[in-house]
Amino acid sequence: MGFKLLSKLLVYLTASIMAIASPLAFSVDSSGEYPTVSEIPVGEVRLYQIADGVWSHIATQSFDGAVYPSNGLIVRDGDELLLIDTAWGAKNTAALLAEIEKQIGLPVTRAVSTHFHDDRVGGVDVLRAAGVATYASPSTRRLAEVEGNEIPTHSLEGLSSSGDAVRFGPVELFYPGAAHSTDNLIVYVPSASVLYGGCAIYELSRTSAGNVADADLAEWPTSIERIQQHYPEAQFVIPGHGLPGGLDLLKHTTNVVKAHTNRSVVE
């Protein structure tokens, strides 16, 4: 069995187990497998329904001669939608809004960016022009300005110390501490036991640490421990890039980060 097929099978099995364990909360999309990078042309966006009122959005972007996937989250909030992270750029984010209108038909009224990198804030200006209120932590807003990236308009308070959590509509926002970046936030959907790890969490097929220019490698494993301790009931975990899975993604990420750190020390 090929690795790609095995990865998709694991996603399907995880979703099936969740649907059985929580039949009222989960209505997993039966329309197909989780979209992969090879299936999404740059400039297009796919939506994948995880649970009743919960979707991931998947886009792709060219970077350094390669094409990478990027995940975000959409959560229903009454007759409105909360968006977590842009679709990595203005063109993708405009396509995301169009796809949401086509498939869901509810307005996106608020959006949260989970850290300051372009795959999370690139497209904020498109959201703002569409009347979406954009939010991020003060740290993310400051770092985005320093980096020359787009800056969300509103500040999220109460997320300055490791372990801080605040309720934001249908989700809980959690600051686990520094990891992929010093400002990275985690998003949890309690009604569906869905954990969105953003770039602080890796997919299972990833074996290298990737972009760690703004990471705190020493603190990252401790931050992941905080996530595990705060959300032990999480059933569906979405990484910032690639295929979702279960809580095993947290341990896998820790292993990859520690291996990278150990290699760096040896070198």
Rank of each mutant, 00 (worst) to 15 (best):
P190R: 10
E44V: 13
E219R: 11
A209S: 13
A218K: 05
N184Q: 11
V11P: 09
T261E: 10
K91V: 15
S139C: 05
G246Y: 09
S70E: 02
S208I: 13
N211R: 11
R110V: 13
G242Q: 01
S161R: 14
A94R: 13
L247V: 10
A25T: 08
S193D: 13
E233R: 08
T182V: 12
E39F: 06
H230V: 10
I227E: 01
A15D: 09
A192I: 14
T207W: 13
V166K: 13
E99I: 14
H241D: 01
L173T: 03
F168P: 03
T207S: 09
E80P: 03
A192P: 14
I100D: 01
A15H: 15
V265K: 07
V266N: 06
P138E: 14
V54R: 01
V146A: 12
K102G: 12
Q103K: 14
H115A: 00
T114Y: 00
S160C: 15
S181L: 01
R141C: 13
L204D: 15
A111H: 13
E150Y: 04
R128L: 04
V256W: 04
S264Y: 09
R226M: 15
T253I: 03
E147T: 09
P23Q: 08
L195W: 00
L97H: 04
A15F: 04
A209M: 14
E157W: 14
E157K: 09
I50H: 06
T36F: 06
H154E: 14
A234W: 02
E145N: 11
Y34H: 09
I50E: 04
P244N: 09
D77Y: 05
E145M: 08
G245P: 01
N184K: 02
S56K: 08
I201R: 02
S70P: 03
P107H: 04
P221H: 15
G131E: 12
A209D: 09
E101T: 10
A111C: 13
E145L: 09
L243Y: 14
G246D: 14
S208D: 09
R167C: 04
T254E: 14
S191M: 07
V126N: 07
I58Q: 05
T60M: 08
I224R: 01
Q235I: 15
Q229E: 08
A87P: 14
P35E: 12
R46M: 12
F3D: 05
Y68Q: 06
I227G: 02
K4F: 03
G163D: 13
E225G: 10
P176G: 14
P221L: 11
S193P: 02
L73A: 07
G43Y: 06
K258W: 09
Q228V: 07
A95S: 09
D216A: 10
S31V: 04
V121F: 00
P23A: 09
D216E: 12
W220C: 03
A165T: 10
D77F: 05
Y188A: 12
I40P: 14
H57E: 01
A90I: 15
V124S: 09
S27W: 07
S70K: 02
G105E: 06
L156D: 02
V256A: 14
G148Q: 07
S208G: 11
L9H: 13
T222Y: 06
P232G: 11
A192G: 10
R263M: 05
F174V: 14
F26N: 15
A213M: 06
S38M: 09
S161H: 05
D52R: 06
L5M: 05
E33F: 13
L47N: 01
Q229R: 10
E33S: 07
A129Y: 11
Q49D: 11
I201M: 12
P221S: 11
G198I: 02
D183K: 00
N92A: 14
V266H: 08
V212Q: 13
E267S: 11
M18W: 05
E145I: 14
E145D: 10
P232N: 11
N211L: 10
L6Y: 15
N92F: 01
L250V: 08
P152Y: 01
N211E: 09
L24D: 07
G197N: 04
L217I: 15
A192Y: 06
H115R: 00
T36W: 08
F168A: 04
P244R: 14
K102I: 08
G2T: 09
V266T: 14
A136Y: 01
